[in-house]
């Protein structure tokens, strides 16, 4: 509207005069906008897939929804107060920290060894490398369900083996109730998480190992360095970029991991084997707003992890 009026008033008078400034400005604008067709779709996608859900999540966390999804008005900070009043929350957060640290540390340690082995020539190496892909290629939900059945208190194959070894006296007793006991269930979940994280980590580290030039090792050998010393002073520092990437990708994956604990124990009994991701889902069943508040807190954790990642990669490129 305003544009039309503007043109109507100024158009006839200014056009014949040939004022060149507006076209030039338009040209500059056009040049500035020239990349838009190329970056536009990606930007649009990010706005739609990342930014919009984040905004929706923050909004939901401040609103009061009935459990049927009907908006009952604003909740202020109530969802957060209720979340922080949850008796289980402290344990859940602690468990999440242990979960991330334990799974990532064990995965990195084991993968370092496996990658080192796979970097050596040995008969059947090709087969072994392929075999390692299996846990990675299989759906995590599927793997978790397989483990749940292996640990079925009535006839799980793990317990059958233990019984034949004389370590378990009877089925359907506390001997065979690992998944029902919060501590045992949690460590079973850690085991499964390590199991499914090793392939990716090993391949990432293997790629790093293969990138270490052979002449560095030759030089170390000439200088008379022991194998341990070579590993410590040559291999590990040169492996640092691969280690860093593998560790950080694992941290995020493990922090967000939902299916393993959910399939093994459902976070139960109660929330006693839940991490923050599982706890968020449990809350959703009775209170959407409180679950959104938990998501906001989780989002905060992720931001911290991302910042640490950015810092670490800066430190990495500076030293390289």
């Amino acid at each position: 509207m305003t544009q039309t009026t503007h043109a109507d008033v100024l158009g006839p008078a200014s056009d014949p005069g040939g004022d060149r400034r507006p076209p030039r400005r338009a040209g500059r604008l056009a040049r500035a906008l020239a990349p838009l067709p190329w970056i536009g779709p990606a930007t649009g996608l990010i706005l739609f897939v990342v930014i919009w859900p984040v905004i929706a999540m923050f909004q939901t966390s401040r609103e009061h929804y009935s459990s049927l999804g009907v908006l009952m008005g604003s909740a202020g900070w109530n969802n957060f107060t209720r979340l922080f009043d949850e008796a289980d929350l402290g344990g859940v957060v602690m468990r999440t920290v242990i979960w991330v640290v334990a799974v990532v540390a064990l995965t990195m340690l084991i993968s370092l060894g496996v990658a080192q082995m796979f970097n050596k020539e040995f008969p059947g190496r090709r087969f072994a490398r392929w075999a390692l892909i299996a846990p990675w290629a299989a759906s995590v939900v599927m793997t978790s369900i397989v483990f749940r059945w292996m640990l079925d208190p009535n006839n799980g194959v793990v317990y059958v083996l233990l019984k034949q070894l004389g370590l378990v006296k009877n089925f359907n007793t506390t001997d065979t109730g690992w998944l029902g006991n919060p501590t045992d269930a949690f460590w079973c979940a850690v085991f499964v998480a390590v199991f499914v994280s090793i392939p990716f980590t090993t391949y990432a580290l293997l790629a790093g190992l293969q990138a270490v030039p052979a002449d560095v090792y030759e030089a170390a050998k000439l200088d008379g360095a022991s194998p341990l010393r070579t590993y410590w002073a040559v291999t590990l520092p040169l492996l640092r970029p691969a280690l860093l990437v593998a560790a950080l990708i694992n941290v995020m994956n493990v922090f967000n991991s939902f299916p393993i604990i959910w399939e093994l124990s459902g976070g139960g009994p109660g929330s006693q084997s839940a991490t923050t991701t599982i706890f968020m889902y449990q809350l959703k069943q009775s209170s959407i707003g409180e679950a959104a508040a938990m998501s906001v807190v989780n989002f905060g954790f992720i931001i911290v992890i991302v910042l640490l990642f950015l810092r670490a990669s800066k430190w990495n490129s500076a030293e390289d």
């Binding site: 208190p153 009535n154 007793t173 506390t174 109730g177 998944l179 124990s265 139960g268 009994p269 109660g270």
Partner: peptide, 24 residues
């Protein structure tokens, strides 16, 4: 005392009913 299945808080009704059906 072990008079029930271990860890009842994680056992769903459908599983317990099918265990009853299996005679255990």
């Amino acid at each position: 005392a072990g008079d029930t299945e271990p860890s009842p808080a994680t056992v769903d009704r459908k599983d317990m009913w099918s265990a009853f059906g299996n005679g255990t």
